[in-house]
Design a binder for these strands. Sequence first.
RNA 1: GCCCUGAUAGCUCAGAGGAAGAGCAACAGCCUCCUAAGCUGUAGGUCGCAGGUUCGAAUCCUGCUCAGGGCGCCA
Length: 556
Amino acid sequence: MTIVEQVKETLKQEIVAAVERAGLATREEMPAVLLETPKEKAHGDFATNMAMQLARVAKKNPRQIAEELTAELDTKKASVEHIEIAGPGFINFFLNNRYLLELIPAVLTEKQAYGRTNSGEGQRVQVEFVSANPTGDLHLGHARGAAVGDSLCNILDMAGYNVEREYYINDAGGQIHNLALSVEARYLQALGQEAALPEDGYQGEDVKVIGEELAAEHGERYAGVAEEERLAIFRELGLKHELDKLKEDLTQYRVEFDNWFSETSLYESGKIEETLLKLKEDGHVYEEDGAVWFRSTAFGDDKDRVLVKQDGAYTYLAPDIAYHLNKFERGFDKLVNIWGADHHGYIPRMQAAIQALGFEKSQLDVEIVQMVSLLRSGEKVKMSKRTGNAVTLRDLMEEVGLDATRYFFAMRSADTHMDFDMDLAVSESNENPVYYVQYAHARLCSIFRQAEEKGMAFKEEASIETLGSEKEIDVLKKVGQFPEIIDLAADQYAPHRLANYLHELAAVFHSFYNAERMVDPDAPELTQARLKLAKAVQITLQNGMNAIGVHAPERM
RNA sequence: GCCCUGAUAGCUCAGAGGAAGAGCAACAGCCUCCUAAGCUGUAGGUCGCAGGUUCGAAUCCUGCUCAGGGCGCCA
C-alpha cells in the first residue's frame, strides 16, 4: 500500500468512527465511504459525500449531518488541517500534505515497479486481440485494436494479473482458399501468363508481391503442377508470407504475442468434433434442413446458429467454440476478446456458447474497438480493403511515426468512433498532444544534464526536507495517483485513462518547471531535493509511457 | 424492423449518481535565466430532444431525432 492509500484509508476509518460516535448511523446502516479527489483545488485534498448519503438514514438534512459528523472527527489521527462543509453537504478535507514527501524515496526505490499493484491477485487472464485474417496488410482498424490490446495487456500486467497475449490465426476457412487462388493468379501473371484474380480475390499489393517473389524464386516450377496440389502449395506459401509480414509489422509496432494459435490445428487435433459431441451430449444442438444447429437462443441469443452447413463444412462458429473451450482448458480465470466493431453482432452467440459449455458468462469479456476513419486535410478518406487502397499499419508507422500513432490510439476511449487526423498526428508542433508528454520527459532529462554540468549531479541520498511548496505538492499528488490510475484503467479495460493521466502529470510538471528554478547553484540543498522530486516524476512518466507503447525521449 | 456505439465549449474529446473538465483554436501576457514542442490569465456550455426515478441526473430508466456499424449455412 502506498502512503497515499494509507492516508485515505485512515481518513475513511475516521469518518466511519465519527458517524458512529455522532449517532448518525449504526455499523449496519453505514454506506460505503466514498473519498474522492476533487477537481477543484478549492474543494480540498479529499472530499466525501457521506453526509448526503446519510440523509435518509439519519433523517436530517445533509449540511446538519456534516456539522455533527465533523464535530466528532479525530482530525489529528487523519492528519486533517481543516474542514469545510460546502454545497449540498460535501465535506472537504484539507490535509497537512507533508506525508506526500514519503512518496519520493518509495518511487525511487521501486523504479520500474512503481505503479504495480496487486489488484489482479495473480489471476490468469488471456487477451486475444488483432486476430486479423492472414490475407492482407493490417489496416487502420487493426492498428487501433493492436494499440488498445497491447496497452491493456501492459496495464493488466501492472495491476497484478498474469496476462497472456494471443493471436488467433484464421487459417482454415474459405478466405484462405481465396488467398491461395489469388496468389496463384498473381504468380502466373508474374510469369507473364494469362490469369485472372477470382471474383472476390485479394487485390492488395501484398498478394501481388507474394506472387512476384514466388515467380522470381521458383520460376515456372509450380506452373505445371496439378491444380489441387498447386493450390495446396500456394496456400502454405501464401500463409507463411502473410504471417511473417504480420509478425514483422506488429513487432515493429511494439506489439508482441505470447502465442499464435492456428485455427487449422483445431481441425487437425479433432477438437472441433470433440466440442460438437460435448454440445450434442448436453442437448445444445439439433439437426434441421440438413444442417447442424446450436440452440444459442437458450442462452439469450436472438436466433439459433448453424454449426455444420448442409455441405458438411463447419461454419466459422464451430471452430471458434472449440477454440474457446480450448482456452478455458488451458486454465485461464478470465478471457478477454478484443474485437472490431464489425464483429459486435457475434458477441451473444459466443457468450451463449461458453455458457453451453458450462462456463459463466462473466468469464468472457468482449471489448469492442470502434471504427476509425482517416482524416487528411480535414476530409475523410474513403477506404476499401477489397480494392486495396486502405491505409495500412505500415503506412501509419512510416508516415506518422510510432509514438504518435500509439499515443493517438491510446488517448481515445476504445468504444467511440474515431477520426484519425493525419495532419495533426504528423505535425511536429504544440498542436500534437503526443509531444506534450514526451517533452516533459525530455525536459526532465535535460535538467539532470544541466545539474551535472553545474556540478550538482543528482544524488540519491540527498535530503528532501526543503520541499513543500504548493507546486511541489501538486506534482507529488499527481505522482501519487499513478497506482490508482493503473487499477482504474485495468478495471475498466480503459487504456485511455492512463494516457489522460500522463497528460495531467506532464501538465503539473511543466507548470512547476515554469514557476520555480530547478537547478540553482545558490541553493544547492533545494536543488538536490528538487532533483529527487524530478526523478520521481521521470520514473512515473517512463512507466506510464512504456505501458502505452510510447517512447520517452531524452532530447527533443 | 431488431441490435450495438456515439451526440458535452468553435474543433477533437475526457467525465458515467454528487461542486460542468482538458487539449487545440481565439484573445491578453511571459524567454539578458535550467529546452517557448513550455507557462500564466481571459473568454467560450439549455451536456441531442422530451418525459421519468432520486434529496441530487451529463451520468440510471423510457420514448424520440441524427451519425456510424451490425443483423449469412461469410470470416
